[in-house]
Design a protein around this nucleic acid. Structure first.
Length: 565
DNA sequence: TCTCACACCTTTGAAGTGG
DNA sequence: CCACTTCAAAGGTGTGAGA
């Protein structure tokens, strides 16, 4: 769905995932599998999986904006009908196998075991967390897609919606609880072969937030209004509000309210606190570059506000991260042909580890580069740049903007040249300019031929529609696009789904689908919190595997795609 | 603390218009 | 036929009243 709107692909041979609802439950077995893989004592390195996975790197896009929010204490509204996140999670992925299909999913996991309350001007711990509800994934609408697709542009999860209602199938959160996004990269199992897919997950503690039903911190409200285009009507400090405009028709110069805490702290580095290793008990680590930096730079001094200090990390940026950031920080994939020389090959990202589980699933987990300081990492990262381009503070220096022809080059035959350039400087981040309207772009004939331009209403949208949405529209709006969705087998949702459980064509064992089936591995793996080394994970409730009666397993989905059912 | 109606906004596609 | 403009619809957003 969103693919059509934001990203052009010259190869449209693969079917898109047209599911109107991209949410599904998290199989508890996955948790166990990943937790096992992340327990170092239990890791049995699988050489094959390691080769395919250890280069995979994920970084959160829009860091400046996230930093702004984290500096104040990010809040996300949850509503009964579902509310989008702002900022939305947008990640860039590198290191995937370009010719392998992957499913990208996102869910929210508790950040800690606390429940919070807003006390006058700050967040305070208010008891222990309520029982965590069953995880629900938001499956990226492009899934499944080839690795080269995922790596070509940052992957946005802006359509993910948060809710506190268990009946609507969205990602469910408890209000006044703190969560962090978690990205799942699932290598799709081969429907014609053994069902073994690699599996990785990356959490983003820098994007942690407290779920609320109404904003508590007015500074968060201001920040959202200032940055969210849909809230533009509330800018000018509320004077766009009709009522207030009528009350105050003339307001030539409006003074900003008192300097926000965020701004104050940004100007006073001594006030800044880094995100501590308080999540250390959590085996999940951040995959993103700056989260790693955070973990490496834990400061011992306690902030006045423990919650806010938990959000704080590094200096805040002054530049707003607008819609244009989809092109910024675009990372071209580094060479896939060059195997790494050591296990930890990504100086500024977390590397991956893998383990073969008893059920045959290769579980992969992220690990920080051990024994390396942040400065070391940064020095290495920019070592290939001329001295003049190396940032003084470890941040990327401003790079010269490539010409507008860069977009066409990516689209057409020029893509190879761009890639070669990226291979020469694999860590270099190329800002990508907005492409012009497609009507003014002359694409090579070979490129046009490679696109599926059929008039089949169930097929992909014309190239013009794709590209016109890219220019100047980083965030896709719902519009009327849903009407144009191809008619795929309906995915039962919510109450309706419970009435009409999905009957897997592959699973004849009963009316209920046990979610191991989503990956195709046997259901004998006991669900629970007990790890193989005896540790327990408090997030994984003990008990039998949950049964989810109505979601089509991913494997079935892929098989249906391949077999044309 | 939560829900809901509301005004305001962006985004989108269709229809209309003119060269 | 193409480019551009206008319009209406859909839906995202925070606000504020009330439960």
């Amino acid at each position: 769905m969103f693919l059509h709107e934001e990203r052009p692909f010259c190869d449209y041979s693969l079917p898109l995932n047209p599911q109107q609802n991209n949410y599904t439950f998290c199989p508890p077995e996955w948790k166990v599998a990943v937790l096992r893989s992340q327990c170092r004592d239990a890791v049995k390195v699988d050489v094959e999986a390691q080769l395919c996975a250890q280069q995979i790197r994920v970084s959160l896009q829009g860091r400046e904006l996230w930093d702004k929010f984290r500096g104040i204490g990010t809040e996300m509204i949850v509503t009964k009908s579902g509310r989008r996140m702002f900022p939305a999670c947008k990640v860039s992925v590198t290191g995937l196998n370009p010719k392998t299909k992957y499913v990208l999913m996102m869910d929210m996991v508790p950040f800690d075991d606390n429940k919070y309350k807003w006390s006058r001007d700050r967040w305070e711990v208010n008891g222990v967390t309520d029982p965590h509800l069953s995880n629900r994934f938001f499956i990226h609408p492009d899934s499944p897609a080839l690795g080269e697709r995922w790596m070509q542009y940052p992957v946005s999860f802006h359509k993910l919606k948060l809710t506190n209602n268990t009946l609507n199938g969205l990602v469910i959160l408890h209000s006044m609880h703190k969560y962090q996004p978690r990205l799942h990269i699932l290598q799709t199992p081969d429907p014609c072969g053994p069902h073994s897919g690699s599996y990785l997950r990356f959490t983003f503690p820098e994007a942690a937030f407290i779920a609320v039903t109404a904003y508590q911190n007015s500074e968060i409200t201001k920040l959202k209004i200032d940055n969210n285009p849909f809230a533009k009507g509330f800018r000018d400090h509320g004077l766009n509000n009709k009522r207030q405009r009528e009350e105050r028709p003339v307001q030539s110069s409006i003074k900003r309210p008192a300097e926000s805490r965020h701004e104050t702290e940004a100007k006073n580095p001594a006030v800044l606190k880094t995100l501590g290793a308080g999540d250390g008990a959590d085996l999940t680590v951040s995959s993103s570059e700056d989260a790693h930096s955070s973990a490496c730079r834990v400061e011992s001094a306690a902030a006045r506000n423990p919650f806010i200090s938990a959000f704080m990390n590094r200096g805040t940026a002054d530049t707003a991260c607008g819609l244009e950031d989809w092109g910024e920080s675009l990372k071209y994939p580094s060479s896939q042909d060059t195997p790494p020389t050591s296990h930890y090959t990504s100086p500024d990202h977390y590397s991956t580890r893998s383990s073969r589980l008893p059920n045959g699933v290769v579980a992969l987990s992220t690990q920080p580069p051990l024994g390396q300081s942040t400065e070391t990492l940064r020095c290495r990262r920019f070592s290939h740049l001329p001295q003049s381009l190396r940032p003084q503070d470890g941040r990327p220096a401003e790079q010269p903007q490539p010409s507008g022809a860069g977009f066409a080059a990516i689209l057409g035959a020029g893509a190879a040249a761009v890639k070669n350039e990226a291979q020469r400087q694999p860590e270099f981040e190329y800002p990508l300019p907005f492409p012009p309207k497609v009507s003014r772009v002359h694409l090579p004939e070979t490129t046009l031929r490679s696109l599926d331009m059929t008039s089949d209403p169930t097929g992909p949208r014309p190239l013009a529609d794709i590209l016109n949405r890219i220019g100047g529209r980083g965030e896709a709006s719902p519009g009327k696009f849903a009407l144009a969705q191809p008619a795929w087998p309906p995915m039962a949702l919510g109450k309706e789904a419970l009435v009409q459980p999905y009957q897997s064509p592959l699973d004849t064992s009963g009316d209920f689908l046990v979610l191991q089936g989503m990956l195709g591995y046997p259901s004998g793996l006991a669900a629970g919190a007990q790890l193989s080394n005896g540790h327990t994970d408090p997030r994984v409730p003990p008990g039998p595997p949950a049964e989810y009666p109505y979601k089509m397993p991913l494997l079935d989905f892929y098989v249906n795609e391949y077999t044309g059912k």
